[in-house]
Design a protein around this nucleic acid. Structure first.
Lengths: 137, 137
DNA sequence: ATAGGGCTTCCAGTGACAGGAAGGTCAAGG
DNA sequence: CCTTGACCTTCCTGTCACTGGAAGCCCTAT
């Protein structure tokens, strides 16, 4: 199977598939013409990688997951540890973005958004402790 | 004022301040020795930039916000539009990460995490429609 | 022979810096 | 005067996971 068909079947761009080979995630064969020849097992791995990346695992995490996937004697604890670590980072990122969202939506609500120059958003970026700052009490 | 003091006062690394000069966000003066000489207005801008970056605005958005901040005749609508656009993207990112978190926390919960090789996480990465997949009904 | 599409490699760019090398500058101390 | 050490400078490389594009080979159909 050539790279184009693999791209169609996995939904991954050909560029990405070449990149995955370059960094050693997959090792397709080569034909006499120099073209990559993909086996079903390569496609299977790429599908796996696509899903793991879709869940936000980093390439290095994917590499580890792939190794565990291929190791029939793995301990599920190893897989779980990777997933838990990733989950923790995702939750931290969500918390960070949520804080941004809260601040931003306050500011967007407070701004008239008309032709006048007065703007609470800029005032707040200039001086976060300025007027209009929410505070306890 | 030299870059070190500016870094202390703004909380931005000197590397970042040099980078901001390189991409034209600030234009500090230069002393006879070649050192950057920062005015209070430069520090003020850097504080502004630090806060805007802290809210997740991109560098280009920061450039636009800075221009509006310095334009006494700006319309608050212009500022608000940038903030709203950014807010929308943040909310989309939160939704994306939340979906990942939900899937991942399901998987982590379903995985025993012991020495046995059986692992729902890997099964699901292999075949998302496989056993254990949540479905309506 | 030619046209087209698919395949190859290699190089550059993305965003927003961080790390580090090589070297100039300045104030304090011996 | 010399040295030490902190601070400053520029320049180059690396990050992460690709993406775009150029130049050129391969294959099939007409």
């Amino acid at each position: 199977m050539n790279i184009g068909e693999v791209a169609d079947r996995t939904g991954l761009p050909a560029k990405t598939i070449r990149y995955y080979e370059e960094i050693g995630l997959i090792r397709p064969l080569r034909g006499a013409n120099g073209y990559r020849r993909f086996r079903e097992s390569d496609v299977h791995k790429l599908v796996f990688l696509g899903r793991a990346r879709g869940l936000g695992f980093s390439i290095e995490e994917c590499r580890d997951l792939l190794a565990l996937w291929e190791d029939q004697d793995r301990a599920s604890a190893d897989v779980r540890a990777i997933a838990k670590g990733h989950l923790t980072r995702i939750e931290a990122k969500i918390a960070e973005l949520s804080a941004m969202r809260d601040t931003l939506s306050d500011l967007v609500r407070a701004c008239a958004g008309d032709q006048r120059p007065d703007c609470p958003i800029l005032r707040r970026l200039e001086d976060p402790a300025g007027p209009g700052t929410p505070h306890s009490g």
